[in-house]
Design a protein around this nucleic acid. Sequence first.
DNA 1: CATGGTTCTTGACATATATCAAATGAAATC
DNA 2: GATTTCATTTGATATATGTCAAGAACCATG
Lengths: 258, 258
Amino acid sequence: MIYVKNHVIFGGCCYSAVIVQQAISKSSLKIACSSCNLRELCLPVNLSSAEVEQVENLTQQKRSYRRGEYLYRSGSRFQSLYAIRTGFFKTQVLHEDGREQVTGFQMAGEIIGLDAISTDVHTCDAIALEDSEICEMPFSSLEELSRDIPSLQHHLHKIMSREIVRDQGIMLLLGSMRAEERLGAFLLNLSQRYAARGYSPNSFQLRMTRQEIGSYLGLKLETVSRTLSLLQQRGLIQIHNKSLDIMDLAGLQSTLKS
Amino acid sequence: MIYVKNHVIFGGCCYSAVIVQQAISKSSLKIACSSCNLRELCLPVNLSSAEVEQVENLTQQKRSYRRGEYLYRSGSRFQSLYAIRTGFFKTQVLHEDGREQVTGFQMAGEIIGLDAISTDVHTCDAIALEDSEICEMPFSSLEELSRDIPSLQHHLHKIMSREIVRDQGIMLLLGSMRAEERLGAFLLNLSQRYAARGYSPNSFQLRMTRQEIGSYLGLKLETVSRTLSLLQQRGLIQIHNKSLDIMDLAGLQSTLKS
DNA sequence: CATGGTTCTTGACATATATCAAATGAAATC
DNA sequence: GATTTCATTTGATATATGTCAAGAACCATG
């Protein structure tokens, strides 16, 4: 499966990189996204200036969230999609018995809330893992606008489809990889996403706890900790608390090929 | 998490039931779906007769597939979504090292191919598990038509969102359930989907092998076999080869609550 | 700066599931 | 209908990960 081979198993990484490149070459897009820095939503769309203004209006509602704050909760009524302008979020579903499952970590430029379109009710919690800014986009307006702007319509479909592909990658990971491979894939995915945003792919802070990583990867926090120690012993990474350095990218990638 | 509690962990089940009920009460919808029996695509939409005809045109391309035949392959170019008219499919992604992961089982009235919108290339294989009939819907036509028919547009979004929710349910299952719970959730999901289609929820044929079930649930085929035997010993099910009878639905449901 | 509460690491041990293997049963093919 | 092939079941054993526990490091708060 090529997604594993190219280490984009979580989906969206390479695509993001492409988008960032496009941003540099298309000035109109920069305008469209100036209000919210919405790489995901606006960029691949070739808009006229009138259309740009319409999208601007749509994405004008901004808000800040403190670390630990909920963007929305499971069970709450769906009205908007949210684009992360800056910061870092997690989404999770909760069992009634207390078990939690993290379904994703989202960073700047990504869209959350897509799950709620299905039933008009949010099916997961979205929680800020650091102080963040988000743009709220009323979904009915987005649908309306995308009827007038085919390229926006198609882009919205792509965003939703990409989420499906991403989820399939995680299913693959959870269903058939060992702890070491899961961690390797996870770290490489973060690395690529930081790189796509202009940050170092080799050195970054983990914004989540071992427990949250474990929940996401279907492992216990002790296993996460042990496996990270193991990767460090092998010289593939340096990890001290939440600071991660990838020392041997190729080596880390090769853990996935076995 | 309510999805587990209500045993719709895989998503789409209860919704399907609602759709079937709607079908009975709305005559215009029956017309719209007569060509392909597309519960998922057409039904919740309130269409005028002119619109009905447009949708009819869209879904006119039908084809039969024999058991084992590929509907599409990973890597092939994306052009259409496919609605299953009759039959049973699986979708799977393949590792380069031979590992396979089944990402879903689809039955009549469900739509496949949504993953490919993202990159215009199919990211998985879709294979008929029994002789089946499908309706092909060129996606560009679907997008065009949904610009004119808002209720169709919204329905398309719901279908995609539902797929995302379904995938999250499977992530939950793969990330935090034991073998017994996974099998329980799997069988209950099939049961509900058959029920929604007017078949017995207590007695049906498994269309897939133990190995395919295992791949889907992140288990080895031996574990699937052992766990099914265990559920049978407890009097919850009767299973002989591919014939399944649910003897104690409540008991089976209670395996999920622990 | 001290303090209390998380979070993280590491060890010893338990257990669920995987692996390997062999026998049985079902289904496809000639 | 006979034969080959494939799917399933079950047992014995191996192993990866979970569980329990304790100490250390880190962080937020007063």
